[in-house]
Structure formats: structure tokens, C-alpha cells
């Protein structure tokens, strides 16, 4: 799967790529970020950050609140260009935010295909909605959807674009525990079917370890820690290896895992 690349910005001096490729077989990463710096006034939120995401790779991004996860994601989504550094991302991107951000004045199915070229294609919208399990809600206004349904609509809207890179900013944070588990399963399933690269921002260490190929921990404006997860899917929370990885991630987040239960 070759992702078509877009050269977004190329500012400052040429940075020598210091990172050795993680996967020798991947020729070009889907996302390539070098020396990315973002300032808000005097404050540097991202400090010369480097990150790669391989095509089709599922990456989870953890980090303390306010450390700059959303900032990075917004830059990758091309919503923020006030940056220094080098950023390359696929042309075909899609985003699902923490809030579903549906247009309230468009019926659910029209929201799903909004922005696609040509006339609104109802069949295509229905197919995407069916895929996330809410085909029967196609003709209602977004305001009557439940939180989980709205979030799934937002996911359908992202997937219908057949992205090479899917950016998810805490899409399950506002869901109840049960709905969240279902939504996580859904994302895992959709990812395996679509094969797009995913960057999932989350606060939930368990969620990260359940879903991702690789978990990044962000701290002080850079990727401070990285954990590759080679466990078989579907993964088992009770697996001792799972617990060990979770423990090490909690450590790197500065949370002693003795005090942290299965939250």
C-alpha cells in the first residue's frame, strides 16, 4: 500500500534523519515528521519532535494532559501551519475528534458523504453507516443521536474517504465504559479491513496496548518513550506480557503502577 505523499512544509535547515528505520521493508513512511516545533507565544509545546508512522501501522499516542498531543494531531491534519520543521503526511487523511463535530443541519447520511466529490451518494453513505453498525439511523438529525452513535457516525464519515491516514483524537473519551469497549473493537476491526495507518491519541493506557502496533509516550514536547507491541490479536488484558507492557508505559508516564488498578 503506497501512500501518496504530500510535502506540507519544509522550513529551516535540513535535518539529517537520525532515526534508523523501524521496519526495513517499509520503503516510505506514511507520516514523516522531523524537527517539528510549535510555539504558543513563548511556550514551546512541541520541541523538535521526530516521528514516523509506517503505512498501515496503528500507533497510539499517550501523554499527560496538556503535553501537546492534540497539537501534534492538528498539525498532521493540516489544521495548523504555524510550525517549524518538516512534516509529510498522506494526501488522503481523515480525522475523528473527541466531539463528533457533525453538521447539525444535515441528516446523518449527508454528514457522512459531505465533502466527497460529486452528488451526495446515499448508497455509499449507507454502506459506511452499516459498517459501523448504525445504518438504521441514516435519516435522523444528528441532535437525536446518542453519544456513541454520533461518534460512530463521525468514524463512518472518516472511513468513507478511504484514508491512508486516520487521525483519532480521544474519540472514545466521552463514551461510557461498555460503549467504549464496543467502539474499540469496532476500530480494530475497521483498521484490519481498511489497512490505513492510524494515529490514536488516548489517555487510556489499556486502550493503547489493546489496539496499537506501537505506543508512543509524549513528554516535554518530544516522543520520550516508545513501546512496540507484538502481541497476537485479539489481545487479552489478563496476559502477563500485556500487564508488563502496561506497567512499563505507566512508569514512563510517571504513574507508579502499583497504585494504578485496571482503570
Amino acid at each position: 500500500m503506497a501512500a501518496s505523499l504530500q510535502r506540507n512544509l519544509n522550513v529551516g535547515e535540513a535535518v539529517a534523519p537520525p532515526l534508523t528505520p523501524k521496519r526495513s521493508k517499509a520503503p516510505l513512511p506514511a507520516v514523516r515528521v522531523r524537527g517539528l516545533t510549535r510555539r504558543f507565544g513563548e511556550r514551546e509545546v512541541l520541541k523538535s519532535l521526530d516521528v514516523d508512522i509506517a503505512p498501515g501501522e496503528f500507533v497510539a499516542l499517550l501523554g499527560a494532559s496538556g503535553c501537546g498531543k492534540s497539537t501534534l494531531l492538528r498539525i498532521l491534519a493540516d489544521l495548523d501551519r504555524e510550525i517549524v520543521g518538516e512534516v509529510e503526511v498522506p494526501v488522503r487523511r481523515a480525522v475523528a475528534f473527541q466531539a463528533p463535530r457533525l453538521m447539525p443541519w444535515k441528516k446523518v447520511w449527508r454528514n457522512v458523504v459531505l465533502g466527497l466529490p460529486g452528488r451526495p451518494d446515499r448508497a455509499r453513505a449507507l454502506a459506511a453507516l452499516d459498517e459501523v453498525g448504525i445504518g438504521h439511523r441514516a435519516d435522523v438529525w444528528p441532535k437525536v443521536l446518542s453519544g456513541g452513535e454520533a461518534q460512530r457516525t463521525s468514524l463512518a464519515r472518516a472511513l468513507v474517504r478511504e484514508p491512508d491516514l486516520l487521525l483519532l483524537d480521544e474519540p472514545f473519551a466521552a463514551l461510557d465504559a461498555l460503549t467504549r469497549i464496543k467502539a474499540q473493537d469496532l476500530v480494530a476491526e475497521l483498521w484490519q479491513r481498511h489497512g490505513c495507518a492510524i494515529l490514536l491519541v488516548t489517555h487510556d493506557v489499556e486502550e493503547a496496548v489493546l489496539l496499537a502496533d506501537r505506543v508512543l509516550v509524549m513528554k516535554d514536547g518530544v516522543i520520550a518513550h516508545e513501546e512496540r507491541i507484538d502481541l497476537e490479536r485479539p489481545r487479552d488484558v489478563a496476559d502477563p506480557v500485556f500487564a508488563r507492557i502496561r506497567g512499563s508505559l505507566l512508569d514512563s508516564l510517571g504513574v507508579r503502577h502499583g497504585t494504578h488498578g485496571n482503570a
Partner: peptide, 12 residues
């Protein structure tokens, strides 16, 4: 403005 942003991510 969050809807405007959503629109931008949809390539409107």
C-alpha cells in the same frame, strides 16, 4: 469554529 475545522478536514 470546530465545525469549520471539521469542514477543513473533509476537504471542503
Amino acid at each position: 469554529s470546530t465545525l469549520i475545522e471539521a469542514g477543513r478536514t473533509l476537504d471542503l
